[in-house]
Design a protein around this nucleic acid. Structure first.
Length: 801
RNA sequence: GCGGAUAUGGCGGAAUAGGCAGACGCGCUAGCUUCAGGUGCUAGUCCUCGCAAGGGGGUGCAGGUUCAACUCCUGUUAUCCGCACCA
């Protein structure tokens, strides 16, 4: 027999699969379907990372198993190809980003193909393809028409050195991630998407889907719902100043107020404020601080009192001072708070710095030392009509009072903020809006989609931070679709998250020219049955795409509220040193080298065997050899093949048990133990010295999803058939049981002997035999047996004294 | 600070409706094969005392429940991830 020539075998089967369209998702909509999804990669210039194959192989295993189980499987792949690195590469090397993308995609595709992943390449999509982003733009227009897309002045991160707007992720330690330059806040007009309008539904519907618990809780925290009240304070200027609080019960303890430095009322009061210069100074310092600086200021509270304007506590009529401080954020609640120093840590710190009164309103803490915040079970004091009530009762009563007197109302707040949807970049979807002086922002007619990117000389952002598109008069100047007058195009582009917010829908019908996907295809394929991806996408991509999907549900494009039935996630593959792989650490493993040296099947097997799928795992160049050895030994089974169309008795239970374990482990992401079980079975087979036809067939089929090339090759050369056309292996629960079972004999919990007994033997007979064991006799000798514990098929424990 | 997770041999990791701790693999040791290297095969490999038979200890740490605890309970430490002045 020939040696295991993995390169030849893998090339042969990859070609066979391609020629025969083996993995084409069928259009027979009467068959049961299964939609498996992995996150489509950003085709970076670095090529495929060794971490990519981990989730891809996992879902490939599930997909391959489902096909053998008779499902019509959709397992697609595409390219999330808009993005900064490509643009930067284009700028540096003066190559058009589309060409960079094309080259990178070609390389990625070649690399992915070499892994034998069963993607349906006929459904390949690319977010930078105008035929694709036509529909990204279309969805944006629908949102615009429904009032969900709007323009707003927003503070953004601005690198003073690169002269570029940075995403929050690009600001590291207060400086620009790339050049180390100073980053400041700059106000710019940005397109926003009203995801907050969907906050409650995004929260509620998590209950209906099968996501990992940690994904659910991360999303829940990110949405950050809280219930409290809005309370109106009047001021000595006669204005109304509204605060949001989750603790309206402590209203009697409010001894001052704090408003954000950006609060608009400050300007309104400017002629009444005696220390305006001091206030302006503080405002400009706060404005220069990045988010990073603000968090660094954690310990030292700063602020300025507004001299000349005071507020009146609505519950007791007391006049209290108003401060500005950067610990109050304009972006949450109302941008103003009532400060209750006795029961809030931040307010307490601030009150100490500015020597403000601290009034205890819930008994139980020691407010001389610290704020008493953990006071849910306390009793109200110094609180007028709330005195003597529990905190819970007080909350109800004060809310009633606020509603009755018209001084406030119950209010729900979310941490979730609207989505900044503009990027001042070239390599993204153009936003299909024009601005007309007469008509304002006007949507491009759908007939003009896709709005393509124009050719430009340079992709470099401009000095003032506008998109490169803003330098192109031929692009900017247009006519208003509404009034026909002169108008200017929007020059910002969409963020990278746009294209990935609906891509799973396009896979259902990727070539449709009439709509983003036909109703028929969507109704059949959706929802995604199983979506695996990284934890890092839990709060952005996953939330964004749920939002878009809900919007598309509202306008009747899809008929389901949620896009993904099940969401799981995988751990990262680290370098040999346990650190994240990076060029600078020199611990990068190139998948091409691994495929060349060990073969795709070994790589796939090792990535699944490396450890718990959900946890990070360090790459080990020596451990992978174990997987190679295993496959060599599987290959070697052909040399000891004998006739026989049934499992031999001595292996029957082992086969049934292993099939059961592998079948179940694949469903629960426990690929490592599935492989371990097959390794054990292989060892058992070799111990018998031979394998028969039935056994080899079953072994190949259950190993096939993991190592598809070698198993197809063995199957074809031994049995002359295509494995892919066989049904998935079955097990029989009854036959998993061994006739004889080893049970453990303990005395006082200490192992004394092991005994082979008939399965399901009764207590008395086992106890009798157990007591006869030499070691047991010894241990029992002269002792008093107090108790005999018998666990069927497991153990016997004699409790003696 | 909040939320989530993790802690088991030299290494990656198994085992939780409580029931043989260390499956499976790597590495290592010895032997066989080999001129040698590599491959392959056989045996061994948690620590410790012992020539052995056999004994003792052991799942981050300290307690508890139980005939029996990696698994349950209480407390505690460390590490990782996410969010973070969210009122």
């Amino acid at each position: 027999m020939s040696r295991y020539d993995y390169t030849a075998i893998e090339n042969k089967w990859q070609k066979y699969w391609e020629d025969n369209h083996t993995f084409r998702a069928g259009t027979d909509y009467s068959k049961p379907k299964f939609y498996a999804l992995v996150e489509f990669p950003y085709p970076s210039g670095q090529g495929l990372h060794i971490g990519h194959p981990r989730p891809y192989t996992a879902m490939d295993i599930v997909s391959r198993k489902r096909r053998l189980e008779g499902y019509n499987v959709l397992f697609p792949m595409g390219w999330d190809a808009f993005g900064l690195p490509t643009e930067n590469f284009a700028i540096k090397n003066k190559i058009h980003p589309a060409i960079v993308t094309k080259n990178n995609v070609a390389r990625f595709k070649k690399q992915l193909s070499s892994l034998g992943l069963s993607f349906d390449w006929e459904r390949e999509i690319n977010t930078t393809d105008p035929e694709y982003f036509k529909w990204t733009q279309w969805i944006f227009l629908q949102m615009f028409k429904k009032g969900l897309a709007y323009k707003k002045e927003m503070a953004v991160n601005w690198c003073t050195s690169c002269k570029v707007v940075l995403a929050n992720e690009e600001v590291v330690g207060g400086v620009c991630e790339r050049c180390g330059g100073e980053v400041i806040r700059k106000v710019k007009s940005q397109w926003m998407l009203k995801i907050t309008e969907y906050a409650q539904r995004l929260l509620d519907d998590i209950a209906d889907v099968n996501y990992l618990e940690k994904i659910k809780s991360t999303q829940t925290n990110w949405i950050g719902r809280s219930t409290g009240a809005e309370v109106d304070f009047t001021t000595t200027t006669g204005d109304k100043l509204t605060v949001y609080t989750t603790r309206p019960d402590t209203l009697f303890g409010a001894t001052y107020m704090v408003i954000s430095p950006e609060h608009p009322d400050i300007e309104k009061w400017s002629d009444k404020l005696q220390n305006m210069q001091e206030i302006r100074d503080y405002q400009s310092v706060a404005a220069r601080k990045s988010d990073f600086d603000r968090t660094e200021m954690n310990k030292d509270k700063t602020g300025v009192e507004l001299k000349g304007v005071r507020a009146i506590n609505p519950v007791n009529g007391r006049e209290i001072p108003i401060f500005i401080s950067d610990y109050v954020l304009m972006s949450y609640g109302t941008g103003a708070i009532m400060a209750v120093p006795a029961h809030d840590t931040r307010d307490y710190e601030f009150a100490k710095v500015f020597n403000l009164p601290i009034i205890e309103v819930v008994k139980g803490g020691d407010i001389e030392k610290e704020a008493f915040t953990d006071c849910a079970t306390g009793i109200m004091v110094n609180s007028g009509f709330l005195d003597g009530l529990s905190v819970e009762e007080a909350k109800v009563k004060i809310k009633e009072w606020l509603e009755q007197t018209g001084k406030g109302k119950t209010k729900v707040n979310f941490k979730l903020r609207d989505w900044v949807f503009s990027r001042q970049r070239y390599w993204g979807e153009p936003i299909p809006i024009v601005h007309c002086d007469k008509c304002g922002y006007v949507a491009l007619p759908e007939s003009e989609l896709p709005l393509k990117l124009p050719e430009v000389e340079s992709y470099m952002p401009t000095d003032n931070g506008e998109s490169p598109l803003s330098t192109l008069d031929s692009f900017i100047n247009t006519t208003c679709p509404h009034c026909g007058g002169p108008a200017k195009r929007e020059t910002d582009t969409m963020p990278q998250w746009a294209g990935s917010s609906w891509y799973f829908l396009r896979y259902c019908d990727p070539k449709n020219k009439e709509c983003l996907a036909s109703k028929e295809a969507l109704d059949y394929w959706m929802p995604v049955d199983w979506y695996n991806g990284g934890m890092e996408h839990t709060t952005l991509h996953l939330l964004y795409s749920r939002f878009w999907h809900k919007f598309l549900y509202d306008i009747g494009v899809v008929n389901l509220k949620e896009p993904y039935m099940r969401r799981t996630s995988h751990g990262m593959i680290l370098g040999e040193d346990g650190q994240k792989m990076s060029k600078s650490r020199g611990n990068v493993i190139n998948p091409d080298d691994v495929v060349r040296d060990y073969g795709a099947d070994t790589l796939r097997l090792y990535e699944m065997f490396i450890g718990d799928f959900e946890k990070t795992a360090p790459w080990s160049p020596s451990s992978i050899k174990g997987c190679k050895r295993f496959l060599e030994r599987v290959w070697g089974l052909q040399e000891i093949l004998t006739d026989g169309e049934d499992y031999r008795d001595e292996l029957k239970a082992s086969f049934h048990k292993t099939i059961k374990k592998v079948s179940e482990d694949i469903e629960t992401l426990k690929f490592n133990t599935a492989i371990a079980a097959m390794m054990s079975l292989l060892n058992e087979i070799y111990n018998t010295g031979s394998i028969n036809k039935a056994e080899l067939k079953a072994f190949c089929i259950m190993l096939n999803p993991f190592a598809p090339h070698i198993t197809e090759e063995i199957y074809q050369s031994q049995f002359g058939e295509i494995l892919n056309k066989q049904p998935w292996v079955k097990f029989n629960e009854e036959l998993c049981k061994e006739d004889k079972i080893e049970i453990v004999i303990q005395v006082n919990g200490k192992l004394k002997a092991k005994l082979m007994v008939n399965a399901d033997a009764d207590k008395d007979s086992v106890l009798e035999i157990a007591a006869q064991e030499e070691k047991v006799k010894e241990a029992l000798n002269g002792k008093n047996v107090l108790k005999q514990i018998y666990v069927q098929n497991k153990l016997v424990n004699f409790v003696v004294k």
